[in-house]
Design a protein around this nucleic acid. Structure first.
Length: 338
DNA sequence: CTCGGTAA
DNA sequence: TTACCGAGG
């Protein structure tokens, strides 16, 4: 998924504390896919309401936002728009992988292999229009703004970070660095551990902050060279060079200066090279999207979660109260600042 | 994923 | 307090 340059990226372990009143651009599709694949029962079934509609995304979105708000963070969700034509291959490959997983899931169900059923169920998840709509409504009810990106959500979120409209981007993907995001937060959650798939063991997971400038300076490369490295390794918009990982790509770029020189030296070609670079450098974005925070609307939240999707009010209510208090306090302090 | 009761 | 684990919808 995305570009794998993790070996080259400078990162720091952080916590959710210490980012009060910071605007964070959330890569919405990225986080929603996480919820869809992870918020499940032991047998792989997602959470559903009484009408059989999936609610995993709503559950994840609600609790995650409560946590962010509780820590004084101001999230802005950024949704994907129309993908670049160069992403067609990646999209088709993902569909094929899902189709294969669907077939394997049938077999696993027949065998009753629970662990396998669970991991395959996570892989076949698909984000529907309705789910996206559900989340947008919930965000509005929570007073959290969202932006519809013209094209790549990561590109829009990264642009907002690069231009200081957001402090950082919340995403699992390293692509954001190629899009120029100065700070990327991964695993930005409260949960301290994650289950290893297929094994009954857990590994500690804590939020980490990826820093673009440090990544560039410590590797002795420019931003353009980082993009070159990403393209050599492979992105959503191109297949990388055979047997070239992040470390090799770094060596090659440092030796020859840029990707064009590397390709010439090796007698290789990458189709649409300039267009791919432009996707990262000259993003198709809304330059100054409106960002307005509101107060959580208890009635709307309860209508969406409890009335429409069977959430237990006893579980929802206390968090609405918490969010409302927190949001009004934040509004107060930001007003005091002026 | 996240919550919350229970065990250590 | 912290770790674990079943349930949430």
């Amino acid at each position: 998924m995305g570009v794998d340059i993790s070996e080259l990226v400078y990162r720091e372990q952080v916590s959710l504390k210490g980012y009060e009143n910071r605007v964070m651009a959330v890569d919405a599709f990225n986080i929603l896919y996480q919820f869809l694949s992870s918020v499940r029962q032991a047998d792989g079934t997602p959470l559903m309401d009484s009408r059989g509609r999936v609610t995993s995304h709503l559950s994840g979105c609600f609790y995650r936002n409560i946590n962010l708000l509780e820590n004084g963070i101001r999230p802005v969700y950024v949704f994907d728009g129309k993908p670049s034509r160069l992403k067609a291959n990646t999209i088709r490959e993902r569909m094929e992988v899902k189709e294969k997983a669907r077939e394997e899931l049938e077999i696993a169900r027949e065998k009753g292999d629970l662990e396998r059923i669970r991991s395959l169920s996570a892989r076949v998840t698909h984000l529907t229009r309705d789910m996206v709509e559900d989340v947008k409504q919930l965000l509005t009810a929570l007073g959290i703004p969202y932006i519809q990106a013209p094209s790549e959500g990561e590109g829009q979120a990264s642009y907002m970070c690069r231009t200081g409209q957001a402090y950082g981007v919340i995403s699992q993907d390293y692509d954001c660095l190629l899009f120029g995001a100065s700070r990327v937060f991964r695993n930005f959650t409260t949960g301290g551990r994650r289950k290893v798939p297929g094994r009954n063991i857990y590994v500690p997971v804590s939020p980490e902050l990826l820093i673009l400038e440090e990544t560039l300076s410590r590797n002795g490369i420019s931003y353009d060279q980082l993009i070159d490295i990403g393209i050599m390794v492979g992105t959503d918009f191109n297949t990388g060079l055979a047997r070239v990982g992040a470390k090799t790509a770094l060596k090659l770029v440092k030796k020859y200066g840029n990707i064009e020189a590397v390709l010439k030296e090796r007698g290789e070609v990458i189709e649409n090279l300039e267009e791919i670079k432009d996707i990262f450098r000259k993003q198709n974005v809304i330059e100054t999207p409106p960002i307005t925070f509101g107060k959580p609307d208890a009635e709307q939240i309860k209508r969406i979660l409890c009335d429409d999707h069977d959430f237990d009010p006893a579980r929802v209510d206390p968090y609405i109260t918490l969010a409302r208090e927190k949001m009004s306090r934040n509004t107060q302090t930001s007003l005091d600042g002026f």
